[in-house]
């Protein structure tokens, strides 16, 4: 079960460029295909597709969402255990850890580059203590 690209695909390659696992193949201006085995269900292809040509594993069409409205993670450092589960869960390598609290030597996670985040929410889903929340990005 994976995301699927329908015949509405215009071959714009936006999905292929954003896919973090290189699961999408296809030539420009031709219908693209998703590899079942490589797809990790992050949904980035659907969110970016201007043609509405991507269906999710349940067969529903995924609507395009303007990048400004994509979600990004915010970290509640009072709840965070510094376990880096969220960093590992991020398929876009958009998270890292660093010292952030005064007189606290434990390194906590942060979003390195907002433009790198695909808004998949895997970080929030993986956090065992709900220290990661997803909110729309500013501007």
């Amino acid at each position: 079960m994976a995301f699927f690209i329908t015949s509405d695909c215009t071959g714009c390659t936006a999905c292929k460029s954003i896919c973090p696992t290189c699961a999408i193949s296809g030539e420009k201006k031709q219908q693209h295909t998703v590899s079942d085995t490589a797809c990790i269900d992050c949904g980035a292809c659907g969110r970016i597709c201007p043609a509405g040509a991507v269906t999710n594993p349940f067969g529903r069409i995924v609507s395009k969402i303007p990048k400004k409205q994509w979600v990004r993670p915010f970290f509640n450092l009072d709840l965070c255990m510094a376990c880096s589960i969220c960093v590992d869960a991020c398929p876009a390598n958009a998270l890292d850890i660093a010292l952030q609290k005064v007189r606290d030597l434990h390194p906590y996670p942060f979003l390195v580059l907002e433009s790198q985040c695909m808004g998949c929410g895997f970080c929030a889903e993986a956090c065992p203590v709900d220290a990661v929340t997803l909110e729309k990005r500013a501007g």
């Binding site: 510094a82 376990c83 030597l105 434990h106």
Partner: peptide, 17 residues
Amino acid sequence: KETRKYHCYSCPLGCGG
């Protein structure tokens, strides 16, 4: 001499440094 703590993956303890 510790400049920061070090947690292994999925460790809430952080015994390393």
